[in-house]
Design a protein around this nucleic acid. Structure first.
Lengths: 242, 242
DNA sequence: GCACGCCTTCTTGAATACAAGATCATGCCA
DNA sequence: TGGCATGATCTTGTATTCAAGAAGGCGTGC
């Protein structure tokens, strides 16, 4: 992560870097749900003093990625499937509102860029799960952004970040990737024809399917993440809440 | 504010206190949009060191109440009517989704407490603007909470906090207070009868009316907030963005 | 009189030092 | 041998110190 620009002197540069790195480590299961650590430990690990570390940790705590116990250390927040479900439902509400607005508008939707991505024939489609996941995020955020409400887009972005850790798992099988391409293409087609009700219906079904798929895979992944020898029942239990 | 419990030793007690006090000062126009200040200044003012002050300031900055200029001080974010409009629209989306869910449900809505508040006859109604504003917030947040989605409720709560500074102005005239009582009562009645479409329509109109009213009053208030003698054109301009 | 440049002062970012108390291990006593 | 008290250690909360650089005033040169 050591970049060649050690200090362009951005505001809060270190805290921001640390924030991103910790978040990435959570997404990449380097930091597992239930893992415990201290501020000093993280300071050593990320090569900064406690001050920017604390900034980053508290930011992640307010965003519900971490938990802090008063004078008793930090921990990665356990998986909470109920919470993921609710975040998916919130996504649905926001995206359906965006689509409704897009279909009501007389002006062009400005979804040309998305259409270019998702109307590619099967031969040109990506099969790299990580890449498709990013494209998928761009698609759904693009819908909300195109609706023109910055605050809705901001909230939707936060939701996207929060579910990313499980959403990724939806793109581990080629069948799901293919389905994503097909459904996105179809949804864009319906929007371009201003068939709001059908677009909304398709979109809802599309997100619900992803939600169900992800839930199915997540538990399995959690058990795989640790070396079997190291894993105790307590550790597994700490990864899941509810 | 010095309370009798100097240290129940809550986590981050000072930063939390400072956060609330600054936020209140923004809401009460003690800190005006455009006002500039430094961390040291705030540390003196609120009787804490820079560390908890910075925690609070950065939290408020991420929540869009404040701005920080790199090594050049802090300022209260100017009013941005476009942003308030979008927040109101987001409110509408969230609350309509909540009402739709409530009306679909077979189970009791759990809105009894709200009904008790808003079905009071004219004689028992509050005419205290501040109080009615709180009741109004409770009403709308109550709808979303009753729908059962904690994440939606959390976002709605954030939105509520962000628009409070202008929303208050909607309860300065008795006619608006009366209208609020009537409309809330009617909306609850429609929900209890599971008339989803009509409830949604009423609720949307209700919020739109509030949005329009608030916008009308806000500009006037901004000009009144400062002593005329002290107020320069530049100061007024700094209070409003866009 | 005006414009440019230097220099002091001020402001935030980061690191370090200090304080309060929670946790856990150890040892004593029943 | 088991349970409890006690103390060392560890952890976060807060204050203070150090560092880098932006802003603005003042003086000088034209």
């Amino acid at each position: 992560m050591p970049d060649t620009k050690p200090a362009i002197t951005q505001a809060n540069a270190l805290a921001e870097q640390v924030y991103q790195r910790i978040k990435d480590d959570i997404f990449n299961f380097v930091l597992l749900p239930g893992d415990r650590f201290t501020e000093t430990e993280m300071a050593r690990r990320y090569g900064a003093s406690r001050t920017p570390i604390r900034d980053a940790l508290y930011r992640l705590e307010r965003e519900d990625y971490l938990q802090v116990a008063f004078r008793s250390g930090w921990s990665v927040r356990p998986f909470d499937f109920k919470r993921f479900d609710q975040l998916y439902d919130l996504r649905i509400v926001l995206e359906l509102a965006a689509v409704a607005r897009l279909c009501e508008a007389q002006t062009p939707t400005g979804l040309d860029a998305l259409e270019a991505v998702w109307s590619t024939p099967a031969s040109g489609r990506s099969s790299d799960g990580k890449h498709v996941c990013e494209l998928d995020e761009d698609f759904h955020q693009g819908l909300v952004l195109a609706s023109g409400n910055v605050e809705m887009a901001r909230v939707h972005h936060e939701v996207t970040e929060k579910i990313r850790v499980v959403r990724r798992l939806d793109f581990t099988f080629q069948t799901r990737i293919d389905a994503t391409y097909d459904e996105h293409h179809e949804i864009l087609r319906l929007i371009s024809r201003r068939q709001g009700a059908q677009a909304a219906s398709r979109l809802r079904t599309h997100i619900e399917a992803s939600k169900a798929e992800v839930r199915k895979i997540t538990l399995h992944m959690l058990y795989e993440a640790r070396e079997p020898a190291d894993k105790t029942e307590a550790q597994v239990a700490a990864q899941v809440a509810g």
